[in-house]
Design a protein around this nucleic acid. Structure first.
Lengths: 189, 189
DNA sequence: TGAACAAACTAACAGTTGTTAGTTTAATGT
DNA sequence: ACATTAAACTAACAACTGTTAGTTTGTTCA
């Protein structure tokens, strides 16, 4: 396990503050105070406030993209792929509780990286939708509107970061299984 | 239909801006520009920026509380009540697209009204949970953790405001029906 | 016609914002 | 022992923040 750099520490603390109050409401002085230093000292390690947000969001968004690519290239059927997607979200959400908040709520404050983020997200949704459509075509899942199914599943998975920290004794494997039951069995024929 | 006061107009426009950028990132000068006036002129109609947020969030939160009370006092069974809850969210979300964004993302920027809001929300969730527990006890719904079921359904319903505006030709009655199928049939025995 | 009023305006305030420049401090490796 | 370097510091900046005070404009109605 490599030791965390000072920059990584700043970004980690920033993500926690961004989750509580949102990017715009957190000042560099807030962040510095939380680190126990002065605001100006932050700039020995990062270029700008914007850079912190970019790092938090883009790094995490790319992990979802990577995960989805792996799932797509597996030879599982539709239901199996959906199960893998649930596990991906449970894993990444539990490992990046604070980052998920920025990903969901502060992406609009990205600057140059905003279009790139939106591209990643729409690609992800497209992949998701095509998995559902294949499942409908092959008769694996019910013939409801794939848009609404995706919306329902994806918003639940995207909100896991709110909910996971509230459960102190949480078994992630068990959570995946329960979500699988609740989200899929309503779809499965 | 009573004509909208200037204050109501300001609050309506503010809610739209808050949805796009969040409460903290919207300045009184942004809001004034959108109204076609100067920032100082806003204060002929409202006391403070805070007041605008209070009105948006509390007004809407109380509508949910009222709706839930009506549902609880109905003599429907569990599944029927869940269906009513879905319809309540579809109705209030479609009528308050912008307000729902503040309700979900900016409630932490409430000041004096923050505790009151949190109380309304926890009461709402308690009512929701007890409906599910009754359903489990009576054998109407599957015996999965009510916490996870509530989380899954509620986060989907709370995110409708993101999704509804993207569908231009949206039949609300049909949306309720589809959500009912997707969210409930996974629970229904 | 003129009083009353709603609603805009200009000008300014005190505090906060992200950020830069230049300097000091303490630990590290030769 | 000394040069290097990481990481803190103080001081300051220009721009922006929510908000107040006092004034002007235009419409309504007695």
């Amino acid at each position: 396990m490599k030791k965390e750099t000072r920059q990584e520490e700043i970004i980690r603390i920033a993500a926690r503050l961004f989750k509580e109050k949102g990017y715009s409401a957190v000042t560099m002085r807030d962040l510095a105070a939380e680190m126990g230093i002065k605001a100006a000292s932050l700039y020995n390690h990062i270029n700008s406030k914007q850079y912190i947000l970019d790092m938090i969001i883009i790094t995490l968004a790319e992990k979802f993209t990577d995960g989805m690519q792996q799932i797509q290239s597996s030879d599982d059927n539709c239901i199996g792929k959906l199960k893998q997607i649930i596990e991906l979200h449970v894993k990444l959400s539990s490992q990046n509780i604070y980052g998920m908040a920025s990903l969901n709520n502060d992406w609009m404050h990205l600057a140059e990286k905003r279009d790139y983020y939106k591209k990643l997200r729409s690609n992800y949704e497209e992949d998701f939708r095509s998995i559902l459509e294949e499942g409908i075509a092959s008769g694996e899942i019910v013939n409801e509107k794939p848009e609404v199914m995706m919306f329902s599943i994806l918003t639940t998975l995207r909100s896991l970061y709110i909910w996971i920290p509230k459960k102190e004794d949480l078994n992630l494997r068990e959570l995946s299984a329960t979500l699988n039951q609740i989200l899929i069995k309503g779809i499965n024929k």
